[in-house]
């Protein structure tokens, strides 16, 4: 597998992503010094050795960054009611994302709750109602996490939580795959969207996505373009730079805003009526399909907000280092 940066940079970036932020700068310096020292020694002992091979041996002597990080930061935390640190950290992240989504729905002027009882716009006044809503959001998150912790048991490692809080390996191969996927999505959304989401009426295929929703589609290109820039930076060997993570954060934020805007549309589906499909049946279908779309949009927004948080943390770490 080819890497987006030099193996040494890739190793250090992976290590950084796994370490507590207070340890990152110091450990990076120490480990880089060890790598350079060992690589130089390998080169002196065997003059035929290429610098790349000497560096590879130096990295091998350090072992996988995951193991080194574990030795430096301690074993993975277990999900347990007594492991307060993991619980508080996750609660803070989930609450922040949940509140951000609720605020975005409020700003977007959404009237209905995409997930009744769990996610919806906040009241704008009076102050007491706003405060109560925020507290409710917090209690929902705390309760949900508590259930997750109890259900997960005491001995599960942190790795059972999806890798949302762990770093990614930005590789050239991954960037090429990402660019191909983005290209495919761009073609689908810009050329074939109405053809895919259409129903056959007699001999004619009629699109059923509402005009109001289709007006949003061009804005999706902005998000796709930002993600493409992120992959291009990886191809140029700057996959682990603050700029790359910054672009990723911006793309994630733009994507989540797009999903929320789509979820807040008054009408997403408008099933065409005809001789076989009456208005009443069309309304039921509208409602069903819109529910599926809403779930996809809300889940998409949530995942992208989490990605935004992770990328923003990565930018902050790199700027501090």
């Amino acid at each position: 597998m080819s890497h987006g940066t030099s193996p040494r940079e890739d190793y250090l970036a992976r290590l950084e992503d796994l370490l507590p932020s207070r340890e990152v700068a110091r450990v990076r310096e120490d480990v880089e010094s060890l790598i350079l020292e060992r690589a130089a020694d390998e080169g002196e002992r065997d003059p035929d050795l290429t610098p790349a091979e000497a560096e590879r041996r130096a990295l091998a002597a350090l072992g996988p960054p995951e193991t080194l990080a574990e030795q430096l930061a301690g074993p993975p935390l277990t999900i347990s009611l007594t492991t307060q640190r993991t619980f508080v950290r996750l609660l803070a992240a989930v609450f922040a994302c949940h509140l951000l989504l609720a605020i975005a729905l409020t700003v977007a002027g959404s009237k209905a709750a995409p997930i009744p009882g769990l996610l919806g716009p906040l009241p704008k006044e009076p102050f007491g109602a706003v405060l109560l809503s925020v507290v409710t959001v917090f209690l929902i998150d705390a309760g949900a996490l508590l259930v997750l912790f109890v259900a997960s048991g005491k001995s599960r490692s942190e790795s059972t939580i999806p890798s949302l809080f762990r770093g990614s390996r930005w590789t050239r191969r991954g960037a090429v795959e990402g660019l191909l996927l983005l290209g495919l999505l761009a073609v689908l959304f810009n050329v074939y969207l109405e053809r895919i989401f259409s129903v056959k009426h007699g001999e004619v295929w009629q699109p059923f996505l509402a005009r109001e929703f289709l007006e949003l589609v061009p804005y999706l290109n902005v998000c796709l373009a930002l993600f493409a820039v992120r992959h291009l930076l990886t191809l140029l060997g700057r996959g682990h730079s603050a700029l790359a993570f910054g672009v990723d954060a911006l793309a994630s934020l733009a994507g989540s805003v797009w999903f929320l805007a789509a979820a807040a549309r008054g009408e997403i589906v408008q099933m065409p009526t005809g001789h076989k499909l009456g208005r009443e049946a069309a309304d039921v279908l509208d409602h069903l399909i819109e529910s599926v779309f809403l779930i996809v949009f809300v889940v998409g927004a949530l995942l992208l907000v989490l990605r935004f948080v992770r990328q923003a943390i990565a930018v902050w770490r790199r700027l501090r280092a």
């Binding site: 130096a58 002597a61 350090l62 072992g63 080194l68 030795q71 430096l72």
Partner: peptide
């Protein structure tokens, strides 16, 4: 001893 073993001890 490899660096990966010694460094965490030193740290």
């Amino acid at each position: 001893v490899e660096e990966g073993t010694l460094y965490p001890i030193l740290r």
